[in-house]
Protein backbone atom coordinates (compact mmCIF):
# COMPACT_ATOMS: atom_id res chain seq x y z
CA UNK A 1 0.00 0.00 0.00
CA UNK A 2 1.20 3.46 -0.84
CA UNK A 3 2.10 5.57 2.22
CA UNK A 4 -0.38 8.24 3.23
CA UNK A 5 -0.41 11.54 1.35
CA UNK A 6 1.37 13.50 4.08
CA UNK A 7 3.90 10.71 4.67
CA UNK A 8 4.95 11.14 1.04
CA UNK A 9 5.67 14.83 1.52
CA UNK A 10 9.05 16.19 2.49
CA UNK A 11 9.36 16.02 6.30
CA UNK A 12 11.18 19.34 6.52
CA UNK A 13 8.20 20.96 4.81
CA UNK A 14 5.87 19.23 7.27
CA UNK A 15 7.93 20.44 10.21
CA UNK A 16 7.87 23.99 8.83
CA UNK A 17 4.12 23.88 8.24
CA UNK A 18 3.37 22.53 11.70
CA UNK A 19 5.61 25.13 13.29
CA UNK A 20 4.04 27.93 11.24
CA UNK A 21 0.52 26.78 12.02
CA UNK A 22 1.35 26.54 15.73
CA UNK A 23 2.76 30.07 15.70
CA UNK A 24 -0.30 31.40 13.87
CA UNK A 25 -2.56 29.98 16.57
CA UNK A 26 -0.73 32.11 19.11
CA UNK A 27 -2.22 35.20 17.45
CA UNK A 28 -5.77 33.88 17.40
CA UNK A 29 -7.92 34.38 20.48
CA UNK A 30 -11.44 33.62 19.32
CA UNK A 31 -13.31 30.38 19.64
CA UNK A 32 -14.73 30.05 16.09
CA UNK A 33 -11.41 30.47 14.27
CA UNK A 34 -9.47 28.18 16.62
CA UNK A 35 -12.32 25.69 16.47
CA UNK A 36 -12.26 25.73 12.68
CA UNK A 37 -8.52 25.23 12.64
CA UNK A 38 -8.78 22.33 15.07
CA UNK A 39 -11.46 20.70 12.92
CA UNK A 40 -9.32 21.12 9.79
CA UNK A 41 -6.32 19.61 11.54
CA UNK A 42 -8.39 16.62 12.66
CA UNK A 43 -9.49 16.19 9.07
CA UNK A 44 -5.88 16.37 7.87
CA UNK A 45 -4.88 13.78 10.45
CA UNK A 46 -7.61 11.38 9.30
CA UNK A 47 -7.37 11.89 5.54
CA UNK A 48 -3.85 13.16 4.99
CA UNK A 49 -1.92 11.10 7.55
CA UNK A 50 -4.37 8.17 7.56
CA UNK A 51 -4.66 8.17 11.33
CA UNK A 52 -6.97 5.34 12.43
CA UNK A 53 -9.93 7.21 13.97
CA UNK A 54 -9.78 5.25 17.22
CA UNK A 55 -6.07 5.95 17.68
CA UNK A 56 -6.65 9.62 16.94
CA UNK A 57 -9.42 9.80 19.51
CA UNK A 58 -7.32 8.09 22.18
CA UNK A 59 -4.40 10.40 21.43
CA UNK A 60 -6.70 13.39 22.07
CA UNK A 61 -7.39 12.36 25.66
CA UNK A 62 -4.32 13.93 27.27
CA UNK A 63 -4.81 17.14 25.27
CA UNK A 64 -8.46 17.26 26.31
CA UNK A 65 -7.50 16.86 30.00
CA UNK A 66 -4.90 19.58 29.60
CA UNK A 67 -7.37 21.83 27.78
CA UNK A 68 -9.99 21.22 30.49
CA UNK A 69 -7.50 22.39 33.09
CA UNK A 70 -6.89 25.54 31.09
CA UNK A 71 -10.61 26.24 30.79
CA UNK A 72 -11.18 25.81 34.54
CA UNK A 73 -8.20 27.91 35.57
CA UNK A 74 -9.13 30.76 33.23
CA UNK A 75 -12.77 30.67 34.24
CA UNK A 76 -11.75 30.92 37.91
CA UNK A 77 -8.96 33.47 37.64
CA UNK A 78 -10.43 35.97 35.21
CA UNK A 79 -13.47 38.29 35.32
CA UNK A 80 -16.69 36.31 34.89
CA UNK A 81 -18.04 35.88 31.35
CA UNK A 82 -14.89 36.56 29.29
CA UNK A 83 -12.84 34.24 31.48
CA UNK A 84 -14.73 31.20 30.29
CA UNK A 85 -14.56 32.27 26.63
CA UNK A 86 -10.83 32.95 26.79
CA UNK A 87 -10.41 29.59 28.51
CA UNK A 88 -12.25 27.74 25.77
CA UNK A 89 -10.22 29.52 23.10
CA UNK A 90 -6.94 28.69 24.82
CA UNK A 91 -8.07 25.11 25.27
CA UNK A 92 -8.84 24.83 21.57
CA UNK A 93 -5.41 26.26 20.83
CA UNK A 94 -3.78 23.49 22.90
CA UNK A 95 -5.90 20.90 21.08
CA UNK A 96 -4.95 22.29 17.67
CA UNK A 97 -1.22 22.41 18.43
CA UNK A 98 -1.35 18.93 19.89
CA UNK A 99 -3.09 17.54 16.84
CA UNK A 100 -0.62 19.23 14.50
CA UNK A 101 2.21 17.59 16.45
CA UNK A 102 0.49 14.22 16.17
CA UNK A 103 0.38 14.62 12.40
CA UNK A 104 4.08 15.45 12.33
CA UNK A 105 5.02 12.50 14.54
CA UNK A 106 3.01 10.10 12.39
CA UNK A 107 3.92 11.36 8.94
CA UNK A 108 7.58 12.29 9.34
CA UNK A 109 9.93 9.36 9.83
CA UNK A 110 12.86 10.47 12.04
CA UNK A 111 15.64 9.44 9.64
CA UNK A 112 13.91 11.03 6.66
CA UNK A 113 13.38 14.21 8.67
CA UNK A 114 17.03 14.42 9.66
CA UNK A 115 18.35 13.63 6.18
CA UNK A 116 16.03 16.15 4.60
CA UNK A 117 16.96 18.78 7.19
CA UNK A 118 20.59 18.27 6.12
CA UNK A 119 19.65 18.38 2.45
CA UNK A 120 17.13 21.18 2.47
CA UNK A 121 17.62 23.16 5.66
CA UNK A 122 21.42 23.17 5.89
CA UNK A 123 21.41 21.38 9.23
CA UNK A 124 24.94 20.30 10.07
CA UNK A 125 25.44 16.60 9.30
CA UNK A 126 27.28 16.20 12.58
CA UNK A 127 24.21 17.38 14.47
CA UNK A 128 21.82 15.36 12.31
CA UNK A 129 23.76 12.11 12.71
CA UNK A 130 24.39 12.73 16.40
CA UNK A 131 20.61 13.06 16.74
CA UNK A 132 20.04 9.87 14.75
CA UNK A 133 22.53 8.03 16.95
CA UNK A 134 20.66 9.55 19.89
CA UNK A 135 17.48 8.09 18.47
CA UNK A 136 19.05 4.64 18.48
CA UNK A 137 20.22 5.17 22.04
CA UNK A 138 16.71 6.21 23.00
CA UNK A 139 15.38 2.91 21.64
CA UNK A 140 17.65 1.12 24.09
CA UNK A 141 16.81 3.25 27.13
CA UNK A 142 13.56 1.54 28.18
CA UNK A 143 15.36 -1.80 28.29
CA UNK A 144 18.27 -0.39 30.23
CA UNK A 145 15.92 1.37 32.61
CA UNK A 146 14.15 -1.92 33.30
CA UNK A 147 17.48 -3.65 33.90
CA UNK A 148 18.70 -0.98 36.29
CA UNK A 149 15.50 -0.69 38.30
CA UNK A 150 15.21 -4.46 38.52
CA UNK A 151 18.75 -4.72 39.84
CA UNK A 152 17.99 -2.06 42.45
CA UNK A 153 14.79 -3.83 43.41
CA UNK A 154 16.59 -7.11 43.92
CA UNK A 155 19.24 -5.46 46.05
CA UNK A 156 16.79 -3.45 48.14
CA UNK A 157 14.61 -6.49 48.78
CA UNK A 158 11.47 -4.36 48.80
CA UNK A 159 8.35 -4.28 46.68
CA UNK A 160 8.79 -0.82 45.21
CA UNK A 161 11.63 1.60 44.82
CA UNK A 162 11.64 4.72 46.95
CA UNK A 163 11.96 8.09 45.18
CA UNK A 164 15.53 8.20 46.41
CA UNK A 165 16.32 4.86 44.79
CA UNK A 166 14.58 5.93 41.60
CA UNK A 167 16.88 8.93 41.59
CA UNK A 168 19.86 6.62 41.92
CA UNK A 169 18.59 4.53 39.02
CA UNK A 170 18.21 7.66 36.93
CA UNK A 171 21.76 8.67 37.77
CA UNK A 172 23.09 5.23 36.85
CA UNK A 173 21.28 5.53 33.53
CA UNK A 174 22.87 8.93 32.94
CA UNK A 175 26.39 7.73 33.73
CA UNK A 176 26.07 4.64 31.52
CA UNK A 177 24.66 6.71 28.68
CA UNK A 178 27.49 9.23 28.86
CA UNK A 179 29.94 6.36 28.61
CA UNK A 180 28.21 4.90 25.57
CA UNK A 181 28.06 8.43 24.19
CA UNK A 182 31.83 8.59 24.23
CA UNK A 183 32.08 5.35 22.27
CA UNK A 184 29.32 6.49 19.94
CA UNK A 185 31.15 9.70 19.11
CA UNK A 186 34.28 7.72 18.36
CA UNK A 187 32.33 5.31 16.16
CA UNK A 188 30.66 8.13 14.22
CA UNK A 189 33.95 9.89 13.69
CA UNK A 190 35.68 6.69 12.64
CA UNK A 191 33.02 6.43 9.92
CA UNK A 192 34.46 9.69 8.61
CA UNK A 193 31.64 12.00 9.69
CA UNK A 194 32.55 15.70 9.45
CA UNK A 195 30.77 18.85 8.36
CA UNK A 196 32.53 18.67 5.00
CA UNK A 197 30.81 17.83 1.72
CA UNK A 198 29.20 14.42 1.52
CA UNK A 199 26.91 12.51 -0.77
CA UNK A 200 23.51 11.10 0.15
CA UNK A 201 22.67 7.55 -0.79
CA UNK A 202 18.89 7.59 -0.46
CA UNK A 203 18.02 11.29 -0.64
CA UNK A 204 14.67 12.60 0.56
CA UNK A 205 12.98 14.30 -2.38
CA UNK A 206 11.57 17.82 -2.36
CA UNK A 207 9.16 18.32 -5.22
CA UNK A 208 6.14 20.02 -6.69
CA UNK A 209 3.83 18.09 -4.39
CA UNK A 210 5.49 19.84 -1.46
CA UNK A 211 5.07 23.26 -3.06
CA UNK A 212 1.41 22.47 -3.63
CA UNK A 213 0.97 21.42 -0.01
CA UNK A 214 2.53 24.64 1.23
CA UNK A 215 0.30 26.70 -1.05
CA UNK A 216 -2.87 24.89 0.01
CA UNK A 217 -2.01 25.17 3.71
CA UNK A 218 -1.18 28.84 3.39
CA UNK A 219 -4.50 29.50 1.61
CA UNK A 220 -6.54 27.53 4.13
CA UNK A 221 -4.92 29.15 7.15
CA UNK A 222 -5.19 32.59 5.55
CA UNK A 223 -8.86 31.95 4.87
CA UNK A 224 -9.47 30.90 8.48
CA UNK A 225 -7.72 34.02 9.73
CA UNK A 226 -9.29 36.43 7.21
CA UNK A 227 -12.93 35.33 7.13
CA UNK A 228 -14.88 37.46 9.64
CA UNK A 229 -16.08 35.40 12.51
Amino acid sequence: MRPAYLARRNPTVLLGLVLATSVVTLFLHDVPRLGALYALLLLAALAGARFPPRRLALAQIPFVLFAAGIVVVNALTRPAPEGLIIGVALGLRALAIGTASLILARAAEPRALMVSLVQHARLSPRIAYALMAGHRMLEHLPGRWRTITRAHLVRSGRERLSPRQLGRCAFALLVGSLRSGERLAFALESRGLTDGPRTVWRPVPLGRGDALLVAVCALVVAAVVAVPA
Binding site: R126, P142, W145, A170, L173, L178, S180, G181, E182, A185
Partner: peptide
Protein backbone atom coordinates in the same frame (compact mmCIF):
# COMPACT_ATOMS: atom_id res chain seq x y z
CA UNK B 1 32.04 22.17 19.22
CA UNK B 2 33.55 18.80 18.41
CA UNK B 3 31.42 15.90 17.28
CA UNK B 4 31.90 14.45 20.72
CA UNK B 5 30.58 17.60 22.36
CA UNK B 6 27.51 17.37 20.18
CA UNK B 7 27.02 13.69 21.00
CA UNK B 8 27.33 14.43 24.72
CA UNK B 9 24.69 17.13 24.42
CA UNK B 10 22.41 14.80 22.48
CA UNK B 11 22.94 12.07 25.08
CA UNK B 12 21.94 14.48 27.82
CA UNK B 13 18.88 15.47 25.77
CA UNK B 14 17.96 11.84 25.16
CA UNK B 15 18.42 10.70 28.74
CA UNK B 16 16.60 13.64 30.28
CA UNK B 17 13.92 13.41 27.59
CA UNK B 18 13.44 9.80 28.53
CA UNK B 19 13.50 10.48 32.26
CA UNK B 20 10.92 13.28 31.90
CA UNK B 21 8.80 10.81 30.04
CA UNK B 22 9.22 8.28 32.88
Amino acid sequence: LTLRDIVVIVVLGVVFGFLYWV
